[in-house]
Structure formats: structure tokens, C-alpha cells
Design a protein around this nucleic acid. Structure first.
Lengths: 114, 114
DNA sequence: GATCATACCTTGCAAGACTATGCCTAGCGT
DNA sequence: ACGCTAGGCATAGTCTTGCAAGGTATGATC
């Protein structure tokens, strides 16, 4: 009974994460906040999705992480995009955009007059 | 090691199938052909994805199916969109479009001047 | 009679997102 | 002093889904 509400993110989450890190180094919580902010709340990142995704992304060497301390004195794990992450992001983003255009065009098909 | 090539379809396949049936009744093979045609080959539907997806969709009563015979004399299973399938398609399509716009807007973010 | 396109189907796997849960700390109100 | 909320990280288990790989069968074409 999934895909009732969220779950649209399938396959897009890592792309969004990489994009957020393209603009600035961030910690996990900050990534989620950033995405929710720029989409004005229409994309909500669950922590149970986020942290495993960050693991996978780090395993693939698209980001590196290091412990740090936030402004408010909390310990945070800060992620930084690697060069290969940057490359990958570029490729992945265009691929996704192409895909989205294809799907959109299908959805806009109208009955032919045949 | 997935998501290397395809696998973009995640969560979109049933939407595309429903859309194809919105315009005309089709059999499985015909659905795949139609989608590949209207996207000029950029969306390829694997049979191993298609038939299971059709099963799920029929289980949810979004389509009904019946055996028939094609123009060339082959036995085919023809799918027809139900009323609830139509309703669902409408909701799902707008939801997906909204989602895609959100993702696109994220991907187009540029560094702020802060 | 071989080969291709058409047409259907299933099993088993891998990936990924979500739910639920847990842990910890800073800051604030009372 | 106490509780609450927000910030912060993390995992285990579940569920859905797409795909690869395999199988069956028939009409058309050469």
C-alpha cells in the first residue's frame, strides 16, 4: 500500500542531494531543510530515506564527509561533493531532465484523429 | 549495480500504461509499442516490467482485460481502462507533473549571492 | 525449415524509500 | 529542576517495483 502519498522520490533523491551539495557544503539535516525550502515544502525528505541515501552516495565516492560542529554547538556530519560526484551530478541531471520531458510528452498526448 | 542505465521509470510505469489506455484499448505488446513510439524510442518498456505491472494494475481494478484476437490472427489480451482507473490516472498525472516541476526547479537552483 | 516479429508469462533478484524506533544535546519556558 | 521542542544522526525491517533471464507459442517471410 505504498506510493499513497510520498514515495515519488524514487530514484531522484540522490540527485537532489548531490545538487544541494553542488551549491554548498551541508550536513544531513541541512540538506533536507534546503530541499524543502527551495521547493517550498512540496518535497519532504524523510530522515529514514536521507541518511541511508547519504551512505550509498558516500560509498560511491560522490561525496566525502567529516565531523564538525554547528553554529549552535551540535556535532554535525558535513558532506562535500567530490569531483566525480560533480561529474556524476551533471550527467544524472541531464538524464533526468530528458526523462521527465519524455514522460511529460506522453502525458500530454491526445487522441489522434485516425 | 542497478540504475546504471535504465531504471528511471521507477513509479512512472503504471502512470504511462494508464495514459496509453486512456486514448485507446490496447494489448500489452501494443502498450509498449505505443509508449516507445510517442517518445521516439527514449522510453523503452521491458516485458519483464510490463506484464507484472499490468497484473498489479488490474488487481487494483484500474483496468480490466479480456482475451481477443489481433488483426493478424494472434491471441491477445486487451486491456481497458475502468472508471476508477481514469480517476486515478487524472490524480496521478497531476501529482507527477507537480513533482517533476519541483525537481526541475531544484536542479535549476543557482548559488545565491549570500 | 529457419528466422524473425509478434505475443504472452514467471521467477528471482536488487535497489531504494518509508515506518518505526532509538539515541543524544541545546535552548527555552515555567 | 523539569519538560518540551528543535536539531542532529542512525539502523532494522518492510514493501514496492523494475529488470534480467528464462520460457512458450504462432504468423509471416524467405
Amino acid at each position: 500500500m505504498a506510493r499513497e502519498k510520498g514515495d515519488l522520490l524514487q530514484g531522484t533523491l540522490s540527485l537532489l542531494i548531490l545538487k544541494s551539495l553542488m551549491l554548498q557544503d551541508l550536513h544531513g539535516y541541512g540538506i533536507a531543510r534546503w530541499i524543502e525550502d527551495v521547493t517550498r515544502g512540496s518535497l519532504l525528505i524523510e530522515e529514514g530515506s536521507l541518511y541511508p541515501a547519504l551512505r550509498r552516495i558516500e560509498d560511491r565516492a560522490w561525496v566525502t564527509s567529516s565531523w564538525s560542529v554547528s553554529d549552535t554547538g551540535r556535532r554535525i556530519r558535513v558532506y562535500k561533493l567530490t569531483r566525480s560526484g560533480r561529474t556524476h551530478l551533471r550527467a544524472d541531471a541531464t538524464e533526468w531532465l530528458t526523462f521527465a520531458r519524455a514522460v511529460t510528452s506522453v502525458l500530454q498526448q491526445e487522441p489522434s484523429l485516425a
